[in-house]
């Protein structure tokens, strides 16, 4: 069973003459236990696709499934709980709550759910992202790279079905960016996670098992474990 499935997915903004079709009948699958990337030019609909797949936005038509959960049949409450317990998020920036420490930010989904953290798992995740000695710091006391690592730890703490990452390295220098990508890679290889990353960075996408390309809101192409120059070529074609 694929981890993620979009069937006939469409998203239209506005109506009538001013209607804008961000996604146009997209059919796509993401296999479990792999590191996926979604790429495309500005306005290709890659972020919109991720938002619909993650349950952050409702498609105008079509179906979205995370494993066997049909998101389109869930009301807002159930969607929220699904996100809380089974989905992890990493954004480009402003991932963390400034009033909470790193530890509290990592545990946020669990705290909201009222569940106690599993200490060995917590320690493992924290060690994996390399933040063991920064847990008591506030986001304002952490560097950009450290903040992203906290975000990754938070995304993993609930052992989610899928982790979505929206331009996770967009705000980082190349070294921090490489670290974060390495963490995501490790999550897939070591923990069996499914990670879907939206990015425009060729070198980030080169870390992935599979890269999907969108153009004008439609599926354009897919590559398996591509090298950066292959990605660049396909991107050119998909313009």
């Amino acid at each position: 069973m694929p981890a993620l499935q979009a069937i006939g997915l469409s998203k239209v903004y506005g109506s009538g003459e001013t209607a804008v079709s961000a996604l146009d009948r997209v059919d796509i699958e993401f296999a479990a236990g792999s590191f996926h990337a979604v790429m495309g030019a500005s306005g290709s609909g890659k972020s919109t696709l991720m938002h619909c797949l993650a349950g952050l936005d409702r498609p105008t038509s079509g179906t979205v499934r995370i494993f066997d959960a049909d998101l389109t049949t869930l009301n807002d409450e159930k969607l929220t709980l699904l996100r809380r317990d089974h989905v992890g998020f990493v954004f480009q920036k402003f991932n963390l709550l400034p009033v909470l420490t790193a530890r509290e930010n990592i545990l946020l989904p669990l705290t909201i759910a009222g569940r106690r953290p599993d200490k060995p798992w917590f320690d493992q995740v924290v060690a994996a992202v390399g933040l063991t000695d920064r847990l008591g710091h506030r986001p304002s006391e952490l560097s950009g790279g450290q903040q992203q690592r906290v975000a990754v730890a938070r995304a993993l703490i609930t052992r989610p079905w899928v982790v979505f990452a929206d331009e996770p390295t967009g705000n980082l220098d190349s070294r921090s960016g490489a670290e974060v990508l390495g963490l995501l890679r490790d999550a897939v290889a070591g923990l069996g996670q499914t990670v879907v990353m939206v990015t425009h960075d060729l070198h980030a996408a080169a870390h992935c098992d599979r890269v999907v390309f969108l153009k004008d809101g439609r599926y354009a192409a897919a590559l398996e474990s591509p090298a950066p120059d292959e990605i660049a070529a396909t991107l050119e074609r998909a313009r």
Binding site: E77, T80, F94
Partner: peptide, 16 residues
């Protein structure tokens, strides 16, 4: 605004 959106994304219900 952004923080609240984040909280909702991470799983905070409307009621909470």
């Amino acid at each position: 605004t952004r923080e609240n959106a984040l909280l909702r994304a991470v799983g905070l219900t409307r009621r909470r």
